[in-house]
């Protein structure tokens, strides 16, 4: 609705450009800074090499070499892009070197953990809103659960599950759920409590049961809050899964890819895996955002 007020004669293309321009500017700035940082951080090594080989470097040589190292301290953007492209399109997707394959391993555990975490968060929130004892007892524990460093917990979870013979998706999903239930819990408690006194009074005057009040008033009113926290939760689930892939022994998933990259000094591989994770997170958050817009617009709850 607001775009409609843009100056007359502005084309769809013009409007799209108007919105993309600030983003593009920032992106270009970041890339420029990145290149400078790459030159600066890799220069020491390049100079050392030159001294050892007894050659004299022109500035042009220096820059060219800092940006094309095999194992740079900081790979340049184009190297990361090439690594990313190589990992995604340059391999059979069943290959152990394919980022698509590793991404899928991570994604499946993320989605499973997200589902478990969301269900747990919603159920706990419903309990908290309807039960005084739960209201006073659950929240402190939920907060405490999030203050435990996940990096410390993750290996224990993996080991405990492994000792029971469970490996693969489930242990990672549990860690993802551990991180993602919390935002859902907080958002849902707030959301289920949004109906104002007047709407609750109306329900009361109709002698509505608590179940009717929940399905017809509290749950629909909470949806904007639920969607907002789902976006946080899916990103948290992805982080949890990747952390779950870091403990020794993991060979698949973006987390494992990060770790093996750092073992072998494959900085390009690390950064490519990092970007793959970031892109995955962005896509997931955008999907939930689209679902949110669709649902809230249909419910008349959009701004």
């Amino acid at each position: 609705m607001t775009e409609a007020t843009a100056s007359p004669g502005s084309t769809v293309l013009g409007r799209g450009l108007g919105r993309a321009l600030p983003i593009l500017t920032v992106l270009l700035a970041i890339i420029a800074i990145w290149y400078l940082a790459a030159i600066w951080m890799n220069a020491t090594w390049v100079r050392d090499q030159a001294v050892r080989a007894d050659t004299v470097l022109t500035t042009g040589d220096l820059i060219r070499q800092t940006l094309t190292l095999e194992r740079p301290v900081l790979p340049a953007p184009h190297q990361v892009a090439a690594g990313l492209w190589e990992g995604i399109a340059g391999q059979k997707i069943t290959s152990k070197r394919s980022l698509v394959w590793h991404g899928w391993v991570t994604l499946s555990a993320t989605l499973a953990g997200f589902a478990i975490g969301t269900a747990a968060g919603v159920l706990l929130a419903v309990g908290i809103v309807h039960n005084r004892a739960m209201d006073q007892s659950v929240m402190p524990w939920a907060v405490a659960s999030q203050t435990v460093p996940i990096l410390a917990i993750a290996p224990m979870v993996i080991v405990v599950f492994a000792s029971m013979g469970v490996t693969g998706l489930l242990p990672k999903a549990m860690i993802a759920a551990w991180l993602s239930f919390f935002p859902v819990l907080v958002g849902m408690v707030k959301g289920l409590r949004t109906p104002d006194a007047m709407q609750l009074d109306l329900m009361h005057s109709w002698n509505a049961s608590r179940v009717q009040q929940f399905w017809r008033l509290r749950l629909p009113s909470s949806l904007p809050y639920l969607f907002a926290s789902l976006k946080v939760a899916i990103a948290a689930a992805l982080v949890g899964t990747i952390v779950g892939e870091l403990p020794a022994g993991a060979t698949s998933g973006l987390g494992a890819r990060l770790l093996s990259g750092s073992y072998y000094g494959q900085t390009v591989q690390i950064w490519a895996a990092l970007f793959a994770a970031a892109i995955l997170a962005a896509v997931l958050v955008m999907l939930i955002g689209a679902l949110e817009r669709l649902t809230l617009r249909r419910m008349g709850l959009a701004r």
Binding site: M198, Q199, D201, L202, W206, R216, P220, G300, L301
Partner: peptide, 26 residues
């Protein structure tokens, strides 16, 4: 039947749906 100063209709229900609400509950 109680009427407040504000209409307090549910935005996600049509007018008919809003009127139907107490009827469904009852």
């Amino acid at each position: 039947g109680y009427v407040f100063q504000a209409p307090g209709l549910y935005p996600w229900r049509t007018i008919a749906g809003n009127i139907s609400l107490p009827l469904e509950i009852m």
